[in-house]
Amino acid sequence: MMQTIVIELPLHCAKCKKKILAICTTADGVTMVTLEREGRDRVVIKGEDVDAARVTEHLREKVTRHARLVSVTNDE
């Protein structure tokens, strides 16, 4: 089952963006990662059986403590 995960976090610099993309793309089941900068900085992850809590935890540990899981929706 496809999922769409939205995580809100500050995107300070190119180095942070690179770390965020590296963490998100190496998670199991991820097929697509996009960065959104409209109003609030967000990462949108699409994939199958992705552990959203684990990805958010890794982002908090490696990049910023301010990563917040906004939503997880199942796409059919």
Rank of each mutant, 00 (worst) to 15 (best):
G39R: 09
R40S: 12
K19L: 10
V30E: 00
R42W: 03
I45K: 04
E36H: 11
V72I: 10
E8H: 01
N74D: 09
K17C: 13
L69S: 08
T73C: 06
K17W: 07
L69C: 08
C24T: 11
C16M: 00
H12Q: 12
A67D: 01
T31R: 13
I23P: 04
I7Q: 03
H58Y: 11
I20T: 02
G47A: 05
I7C: 03
A27Y: 10
A22F: 05
T25A: 03
D41P: 03
A52S: 14
M1Q: 12
K62C: 07
I45H: 04
C16I: 02
V72L: 08
H12F: 15
A22R: 09
I7G: 02
R60C: 02
K17L: 11
K18G: 02
T25K: 06
T34D: 11
K18N: 07
L11A: 09
K18W: 03
K46C: 07
D41H: 14
K62M: 12
H66V: 00
K62T: 09
R40F: 15
R60L: 01
T25V: 08
K19C: 01
E61C: 07
G29K: 06
G47I: 05
V30C: 01
V50G: 01
G29N: 05
R68Q: 06
V63P: 12
G47M: 06
D49M: 06
A52V: 08
V50I: 08
V33Q: 08
E38Q: 07
V44T: 15
T26R: 12
A53C: 09
C24G: 07
L11Y: 13
E76W: 12
L9T: 01
A53Y: 15
C13L: 01
N74C: 10
V55P: 02
D49E: 06
D49P: 02
G39C: 05
D41E: 10
V6W: 03
V70S: 00
A67K: 01
R40Q: 13
D41G: 04
K17A: 13
K46G: 06
A67G: 01
M2P: 14
R65A: 09
E61A: 15
E57A: 15
A22S: 09
V63K: 14
I20P: 00
D51F: 07
H66Q: 03
R40Y: 13
T26I: 06
K17T: 14
M32F: 10
A52K: 08
T56E: 04
A53H: 15
V63F: 13
K15Q: 06
V44K: 15
E48S: 10
E57Q: 15
E8A: 02
L21F: 09
D51I: 10
V33D: 10
A27M: 13
I7N: 03
E76R: 12
P10G: 05
N74W: 10
I23T: 14
V33I: 12
T26P: 05
L9R: 03
A14D: 04
H66F: 06
K19N: 08
I5L: 00
G39E: 10
V55K: 00
P10I: 04
R65K: 13
N74A: 11
H12A: 15
M1N: 10
P10S: 06
M1P: 09
R60G: 00
R40K: 12
R68P: 02
L35P: 01
A27T: 12
L35I: 14
D51K: 15
S71G: 03
M1D: 07
T4G: 06
L35M: 04
L59F: 04
T56C: 04
V6R: 08
L59E: 01
P10E: 09
V30A: 01
